[in-house]
Simulated scan of single mutants.
Amino acid sequence: MQIFIAFLLAIVFFSLQAKAKDPKLIWFTEDYPPFNYHVNGNVEGIAINALKTIYRDLNWDFDPKEVMLLPWPRAYHMTLANHNACIFSMTYTEERAKLFQFVGPAMDNHVAIIGHKETDYQLSDLTSLGALKVGVVKNDIGHQLLRQAGVSKESLVFLASGFELVQMLKLKRIDLIAYGDVIARYQFKRAGIDPSHFRIVLPLRSSYLGFACNQGVRKRLIEKMNKALKTIKRREPEIFDPEYFYSKVE
């Protein structure tokens, strides 16, 4: 009997140990296809698949309820305000690395000024914008890069999402958008707009997307997630490829 009780206590102990090692993080994200987006009440995409794989490899329990899809400005603010919060997918910059702890690189991201092919805009740099209006999502990497370059607020049109950016660009209510190239192309497709009618007018930044956590998250957790991510990228590089992802879901 004593042996049986000891066995039960051991099971309880190891169960508690297993639960104790779960990170209990809150994850914020936005509509940013193909990396993260909303489908039938769930968050889908390349980044969420990568995150689930990180959790699986670390033997952590993944709870979909701990992932909240919000407009980017609110998700960004909520991550900065909560010590156990993380956000994805975030483009890495040196400025953001001072505010967040990054898990990455996960996926490549090329940010650019994008416009209609039929227009003759020729921008040598951002000082050439003149009276042109550029659509941005507040605190998105496109907005931050323009702000850092000294582009005036009067030149910017703030919209809630990338989906709205491409719609407004098609309707010519804005002249240009500052956004990730891959994401813009998929937003065009979602909006029923032919991406081939648009072009990169001016490249802004080539970087990578990753997962970014509040500075209050334990550094040991960040180290574990980074180590797991590196292993997964070597083992399953295809799951980070947008073309491979869409070939599986279309």
Rank of each mutant, 00 (worst) to 15 (best):
L25C: 05
L16V: 08
R218W: 08
M225H: 12
V43A: 02
L171G: 08
Y55D: 10
T231G: 06
A131F: 13
A184P: 01
L123S: 14
L165R: 11
K248Y: 06
P64S: 01
F62I: 07
W27K: 00
N82L: 10
L171K: 14
G180P: 06
S155F: 02
E95N: 12
S247F: 00
A228V: 04
S247T: 00
R218C: 11
L126E: 10
G150H: 04
Q122Y: 10
L8R: 01
F14V: 04
K248E: 13
I48Y: 03
I87Y: 01
L169A: 07
T127G: 09
I54Y: 03
A106S: 15
L51D: 06
N49H: 12
S247Y: 00
A47L: 09
V157D: 04
N84V: 12
F14C: 04
I5F: 09
L9D: 01
R190E: 14
W72V: 03
D194Y: 08
A20H: 09
L129K: 08
N84T: 14
V43I: 08
N109P: 00
L229V: 02
V217D: 03
S207Q: 04
F158L: 15
K219V: 12
L69W: 09
N214H: 13
Y179V: 11
P73Y: 09
Y92W: 09
I239F: 02
F13M: 09
R56W: 10
A75E: 04
N84M: 07
T79Y: 10
H110S: 15
D241L: 08
L123T: 12
H110G: 14
G180M: 02
A81C: 03
Y208T: 06
R190V: 10
E223H: 15
I3W: 12
V67W: 08
G41T: 11
I113M: 11
F28K: 08
L202S: 10
S206R: 04
S207L: 05
K19Q: 07
V134R: 01
V217L: 06
A75N: 05
L209D: 09
T53I: 06
V182W: 00
T91V: 15
E164A: 01
E66L: 01
H110F: 15
L99T: 13
H38D: 05
Y179H: 11
F102A: 10
C213E: 05
D194G: 01
M1L: 15
I239N: 00
L145N: 07
N59G: 12
K21Y: 08
F28N: 10
Y92H: 12
R147W: 13
Q167H: 15
A47S: 15
K138F: 06
M168V: 13
K248Q: 14
M90G: 04
K52E: 08
V137Y: 12
H38C: 03
A85L: 07
F62M: 09
R147L: 14
V43H: 04
Q17N: 05
K230A: 12
G45R: 12
Q122H: 14
K219Q: 14
